[in-house]
């Protein structure tokens, strides 16, 4: 089985006023389909940078990165866009929903860039919204939804394309504890039941502990990569 993500000595440097800033100094790992990974580490350690690379939003300045078996080095911006559309679902800390746009249209947005017709898009979006428990909020605008509901709409948008990997960078950062818990439970449930790989950046030790694998980042490198022992019988995928 091809790994969903394969990173070999991946580096990312920024040029800042002539100075080179090393955000990632060579990280290697694989993420298997259906994995549940928490990315932890202090601020500035390179977690978001890593997520952008994994999601194909950005390209490494060194090393090799394969998303769904495809080397991103050989892909142009348009091909990368298609790869993101087909393989990745993003959940952002600040939701990033389109204002003045209904929940169902927000969720359907990725399908627009798949060339799906309006009716098919709406049907699919409605089904996914029902799955995240928002079947009664289809035509609400983001400003008519609570923070937790908005993030669930964003999760539905990430799911609507049936991606292999769900990338969530501090998805509960803008939510209160109760709403945050609900969002986390939803993400974990989707990982368990739908088999979508979940890679989540979190500062919460408990949340990280619930993942089956934790990648600890520090100063642009992986300090520690720990996996729980396989739970026999419950495991669908082989461990790396």
């Amino acid at each position: 089985m091809t790994p969903a993500i394969e990173a070999i000595d991946v580096r990312r440097a920024y040029q800042l006023e002539g100075l080179e800033v090393q955000a990632l100094r060579g990280v290697s790992f694989t993420i298997e389909p259906g994995a549940h990974v928490a990315v932890v580490g202090p601020s500035g350690s390179g977690k978001s940078t890593l997520m952008h690379l994994i999601g194909g939003l950005d390209r490494p300045t060194g090393g090799r990165l394969l998303i769904d078996g495809r080397d991103v080095a050989g892909l142009g911006p348009a091909e990368l866009a298609t790869l993101r559309n087909e393989t990745i679902g993003f959940v952002f800390q600040s939701f990033h929903l389109l204002a003045r746009t209904s929940a169902v249209d927000n969720v359907a947005l990725p399908l627009v860039y798949r060339g799906l017709g309006a009716k098919a898009r709406r049907e699919k979006a409605r089904a996914v919204l029902e799955r995240v428990g928002l079947g009664h909020r289809l035509d609400h605008r983001p400003n008519q939804l609570s923070g937790g509901e908005q993030q669930r709409v964003a999760i539905a948008r990430a799911l609507v394309t049936d991606p292999a990997v769900l990338l969530a960078d501090e998805p509960t950062g803008n939510l209160d504890t109760a709403n945050g818990q609900a969002v986390l439970e939803l993400l974990e449930q989707l990982n368990r039941e739908a088999g979508v790989a979940l890679v989540m950046v979190t500062h919460d030790r408990e949340v990280a502990a619930r993942a089956r694998r934790r990648i600890h980042m520090r100063d642009g490198v992986i300090e520690q990569d720990e996996s729980d022992a396989p739970e026999t019988g419950d495991e669908i995928w082989e461990r790396p």
Binding site: G55, L57, P77, A78, A81, T82, R84, N85, E86, F90, H96, L98, L109, P110, Y113, R114, R157, T161
Partner: peptide
């Protein structure tokens, strides 16, 4: 700009 970033994240090509 943010909307453009989001659209790109979900699969919009530069041309779109």
């Amino acid at each position: 700009t943010k909307e453009i970033g989001l659209r790109k994240a979900v699969g919009a090509k530069p041309r779109d």
